[in-house]
Design a protein around this nucleic acid. Structure first.
Lengths: 339, 339
DNA sequence: TTAAATAGGGTTACCGATAACCCTATTAAC
DNA sequence: GTTAATAGGGTTATCGGTAACCCTATTTAA
């Protein structure tokens, strides 16, 4: 590999002069500058950012950790983060925790040893606390995305899960439903808790009693097994609508319903959090509370870089992005079947 | 940040001894080893991989470049690559070219300055040649994914685009269609060329004349504008089926058809390359030639690491993964409307 | 005319880790 | 009892780049 010393030799200057040309610092005559640049091109010089990082104590690498790279919500978020990072002159190291604390921990160690300048962190859940504390202990700036973690005070970009849930459940109630099931993620995840709260509040405000028999808890990821539906359906007074706490769970619910010969929305209404992008483009079917995923990434990155460059207030900033009720056809009025 | 010198001081040994403990090299007594390890834990030591990379001349970072992070094909591929990289002890730097040669070039420069050990490269198209040559000039090992680039001889993992296209078109012909349109990606992309060839061959073998009026060329990404459909539909003898060269194009085609009040499959059959994962799970609708995306990433990564570690033959390896015809309901027999 | 300022560029030490080699007590061998 | 091995650990140079400081010739100001 070509180094500044090679350039220096060919251009008949010192290595320091080459460094100055590269960084546009110091005093260099136009003549030498041109000569050096020419040699750099001829030799195809590419700076070694490891060496540079070592002395500058900054890598210009940021890192983005998401919990599921196959979920369209996170890929849109990733695109927002990447676009913004690039615009601001940073490289981006991706990581995928698969909702697994151990993978997350591995990833944190890796990130620390890479000495990244900052981390955009979508936590797997409350137990991510330990991993985030590790980042803090090493003074790595980070911004949390999507899921708050109790015990951590930091910049955060999240959605309004409670409000979104309320919108969805309100909508179902408006349609005449009162037996509404909730298929939720783990309560170790803040968004699942908030969506539960939104669900509960909405019911309460409408005078509908909360029935714990109608609440299922799963993981946001394992949507394939629809076993739990049997429990819901064998209820003496089964639900007429299901609120799935995220897109994957909704897909699981709908598949499982269809396998049992239950039609959506004719026999069962289904709504969920997070849109399905391509799916919805292909077939506008699912009624959802859609979150501006791209913005999550873009704004998070913006906050992170501001924090790193020190041109943000020391105050912690919490950005809550609204979600949007998109009414399509997976839920219908309960009375319509009698029409 | 804690360094080996801090550890050395606290443990009352030299920095070299610490290094030896970390790497399990040299001769160190069990006693000192334990003492050093204890200090490392107490001080929360994390090795600086930049410093290590500098002297070892290897970073243990690999890089994955894809052309569209929102396309489920590439995210599955990415997951395969990441899982495998992790298993083999490498970190992964992601990049997203958005099918743009310039972004791709930026990314190559970044990758070079990071001194990654190797690159998994899904080229934007034939003009990626220049970017790949740059990697070669700097002796960075790489494996090409998905799209061959004329002029580059390297390890590659790709799908059997011609065969997949043939299967799809054969199937349409079997269903009685003979006016079959092709909505293709840019011919600067090898997969688009091969899918065209498969299409053409299939028609020829069945004695159907190829009609250039039925062939549309777009980019794999810009599926939103359905303008071209007007051209197809105003044909004196319009198509009864459309073969879209990838999933995004198919979504665009179907949306545009529906906007025009044309039903799929009743009025128009549609098939395409690449599955839609979640979409298909939700609603098994699109008939597709599905590629094992995860395997693309996993095998590519495997090849790359073997190449880097030098335990592969010097011969170039080309792995062609088959695609699978999945018959669902977006295409139907032409005659059925007369039934 | 002379001192001070400036332009243009070089020296040196250091970032954190490792390779290659060296040194000194023990221990083993004869 | 002496020599050769070996265990256990230290020294030094180096990876590629940059900060801080230094040096010298020319220019500028008085």
């Amino acid at each position: 590999m070509v180094t500044i010393y090679d350039i220096a030799q060919h251009a008949n200057v010192s290595a320091m002069t080459v460094s100055k040309v590269i960084n546009n610092t110091g005093r260099i005559s136009e003549q030498t500058r041109k000569r050096v640049k020419k040699v750099m091109e001829e030799l195809n010089y590419i700076p070694n950012s490891n060496a540079r990082s070592l002395v500058l104590q900054q890598t210009k690498i940021l890192s983005l950790l998401i919990t599921d790279i196959t979920n369209p919500f996170y890929t849109s978020l990733a695109r927002g983060a990447e676009d913004t990072a690039k615009r601001l002159g940073y490289r981006l190291l991706f990581g995928n925790s698969d909702e697994d604390y151990l993978k997350e921990q591995d990833y944190v160690d890796m990130v620390l040893s890479t000495r990244v300048d900052g981390v955009l962190f979508a936590p797997a859940g409350d137990q991510s606390l330990k991993n985030l504390e590790k980042l803090m202990a090493h003074k790595i700036p980070f911004v949390i995305l999507d899921r708050a973690v109790p015990g951590i005070e930091s910049d955060i970009v999240a959605g309004d899960s409670k409000e979104g849930a309320r919108k969805l459940v309100d909508y179902l109630i408006e349609l005449g439903h009162s037996r509404i099931a909730l298929v939720n993620g783990s309560l170790e995840v803040s968004t699942a808790r908030l969506r539960y709260q939104g669900y509960a509040e909405s019911l309460k405000l409408q005078g509908i009693e909360l029935d714990h028999e109608l609440i299922i808890q799963k993981s946001y990821r394992d949507y394939k097994d629809g076993e739990y539906l049997n429990q819901l359906l064998s209820n003496p007074s089964p639900p007429t609508a299901i609120f799935a706490a995220n897109n994957f769970l909704a897909v699981g619910v709908i598949r499982a319903l269809r396998e049992r010969g239950i039609r959506v929305p004719e026999d069962m209404s289904v709504v969920c959090f997070d849109d399905l992008d391509l799916s919805s483009a292909l077939d506008p079917f699912l009624t959802v509370a859609s979150q501006p995923a791209y913005l999550f990434g873009a704004m998070g990155m913006q906050l992170l870089v501001e924090r790193i460059q020190g041109n943000s207030t020391p105050d912690i900033r919490k950005i809550i992005l609204p979600s949007d009720l998109i009414i399509r056809s997976s839920a219908q009025a309960l009375t319509s079947e009698y029409v």
